[in-house]
Amino acid sequence: MATLILKPKHEFTVPVEVEKIIPDNIAGKSLDEVLKIRVYEGNRRRTLGELFEVSGEVAEKPAEQEIIFQRNTCRIRRIGEEMSAGKIIIEGDAGPLAGFKMKGGTLIIKGNAGPWLGAKMKKGFIEVFGDAEGFVGSKLRGEELYSGMSGGMIVIHGNAGREIGAHMAGGAILVEGNAGILPGMHMAKGEIMIKGNCAGWPGTHMIGGKIIILGKVESIAPSFYFEAVKKKAKFVKEKIPGPFYLFLGDVLDNIAIPGKLLISVKNNPHLKYYEQFVEEVKDEWVEIV
């Protein structure tokens, strides 16, 4: 695997857009050509060579290309946009829209990720070792319903912000920390698992898919109805031991084929109220009133 290392030449004070710096664009080019790829610094057109110190080598094929962003990277946005192969590593924080519309390959962020991480992603793998801001794997504002992430996997080892997986239509998101409000809002398909707590209202307006929450959930939207207590759940073929409260919904959007909300029984004593509904019907109740 050939590695290309990019170090900012100066501290960026405005957003820098690097949507062209992806393995698909770099592999097979000479280093000189790579230095001439255009990037934006604020509203100014620049070349890669003007903004970054570039070292390392260029691979023949995108799949063999690795790109590493080093030093202060938090203002760099749109890293790995539409990449389809290879690997990008960000050793610091990533700005907004990292992995936007990603089609394959791997994106690793060692620091924190900005909002809209993996938005509209189709395939591939994203791993964040720090926290991620809101709208992970969601769609952009104003677009059609259910046009968020449609495949691939996002793993966040820290916490995530609000509305993760909004309008998700496939793929999986795993948050090992806590998540903000409204995860899986308007979700149509796919899976979300939050190992920590959720600030509230998971799955509002969902019409399909699955959200598993192992920590505490502050509140559940009233448009979900209680279905059963499940012993275990499944997240991307992996069995997660329960028990879980299973809620179905969102009734406001679709009453026929609802989405699933699996919420840990252990950490949510305030949901115990629902347990009375799983009673067996006693045979004598059936006898005529």
Binding site: E19, L140, R141, G142, E143, E144
Partner: peptide
């Protein structure tokens, strides 16, 4: 306001 998606077409 209603169509932010009209305003970020073309990337």
């Amino acid at each position: 306001l209603l169509m932010p998606n009209d305003h970020y077409k073309k990337g």
